[in-house]
């Protein structure tokens, strides 16, 4: 595995930025400053970052209701993300999407998605466009273990397989579909093994190990870009927070969560790159401080951005229909 110092530090910086963002959002939501609902990504950082490390701005990702980590890993501006969570006009969707519909098409981030299993058909559409136009773009489709049981996910994988589309399906198996354990809801045992039914490769990866994720995602993206078709990566992971903020988390034990926090993916990666001389502790401290500053600046930006006006309600909601066509159909 080739890993440059620049790439290692970039991945560390993205993971720290996701974590800092999520921890701050947790407090802001508890304080009643954020409207709507939030689902936090902390704990799962290695998955989004390990995959997006192989994508550039032109590539596509589809996301889930737990989408902040995907946005940040893809390089979406955190100021405008925070403003979106606050429902302000400077948000990425002018405050109309909020946490669960945050999107930035200019960065290939096709949107967080309130529909569980909503991402796979979108990823297939984006990949079909790329394949038809011959652009070499790849679509990474993040979905959870709950979405793995949805029909749309099966349809998406089947479609990607029969049309040989450049999609990397990334199942973030955090072991609970809301509160239902994967051991209860998944007949297959491992979600990766469903790949065999679609005649595509499937692998299981430790989603708490950034380097394992980075390597597997690299191989899957390379296949997709080379026209070899889709693949499925199942990342075994764990979310540090509840399903949503406010969830009492009665379905898993504090000991389980403590065990995972001890194996924290960010700390683990820090130890790995320091021991292999790709970073010194000072680099990591600088990254931590700059992430904290970036999040505070994002917060100031969001707070100072105006609320949308009532008359904004219908803008950017419906596609404007050309007046000429309207007249013709009348």
């Amino acid at each position: 595995m080739e890993l440059t110092k620049d790439k290692a530090l970039w991945m560390y910086e993205r993971m720290v930025l996701v974590r800092t963002f999520e921890e701050r959002v947790s407090k802001l939501f508890a304080d009643g400053e954020i409207p709507g609902f939030v689902h936090l990504y902390a704990g799962e950082e290695a998955v989004a970052v390990g995959v997006c490390a192989h994508l550039d701005h032109a590539d596509f990702i589809t996301s889930t209701h737990r989408g902040h980590g995907h946005c940040i890993a893809k390089g979406v501006d955190v100021k405008r993300m925070m403003a979106e969570l606050f429902g302000r006009v400077d948000g990425l969707c002018r405050g109309k999407g909020g946490s669960m519909h945050v999107a930035d098409v200019s960065m290939g981030m096709l949107g967080a998605n309130g529909i569980v299993g909503g991402g796979p058909p979108l990823a297939c559409g984006a990949a079909l466009t790329a394949k038809t136009l011959g652009t070499q773009q790849v679509a990474a489709c993040f979905f959870g273990d709950g979405a793995a049981e949805q029909g749309t996910t099966h349809e998406g994988m089947n479609l990607a397989a029969i049309w040989n589309l450049p999609v990397v399906f990334v199942c973030e198996n955090n072991q609970f579909a809301e509160s239902t354990p994967v051991t209860y809801h998944c007949a297959a045992g491992d979600i990766a093994e469903r790949a065999a039914s679609y005649n595509i490769p499937g692998v299981t990866v430790d989603g708490f190990d950034l380097l394992a994720m980075y390597e597997a995602a690299g191989a899957a993206v390379e296949r997709a870009r080379a026209g070899e078709g889709p693949s499925l990566i199942e990342a075994k992971t764990w979310r540090y927070f509840g399903h949503f903020e406010g969830d009492q988390v009665t379905y898993r034990t504090a000991e389980q969560s403590a065990d995972y926090r001890e194996r924290d993916p960010i700390k683990r990666f820090a130890d790995q790159i320091v021991s292999r001389d790709l970073a010194v502790p000072g680099d990591l401290e600088t990254i931590q401080r700059s992430a904290e500053t970036e999040i505070e600046e994002a917060l100031e930006y969001a707070r100072s951005s105006p609320m949308p006006q009532p008359e904004d309600c219908l803008t950017d909601v419906y596609v404007s229909y050309p007046a000429a066509k309207l007249a013709a159909s009348a």
Partner: peptide, 15 residues
């Protein structure tokens, strides 16, 4: 279940 299903032609043995 490892990466050799992506980088080689290793089969996936189901549960």
């Amino acid at each position: 279940r490892d990466i050799r299903r992506l980088v080689a032609d290793a089969p996936l043995m189901s549960h």
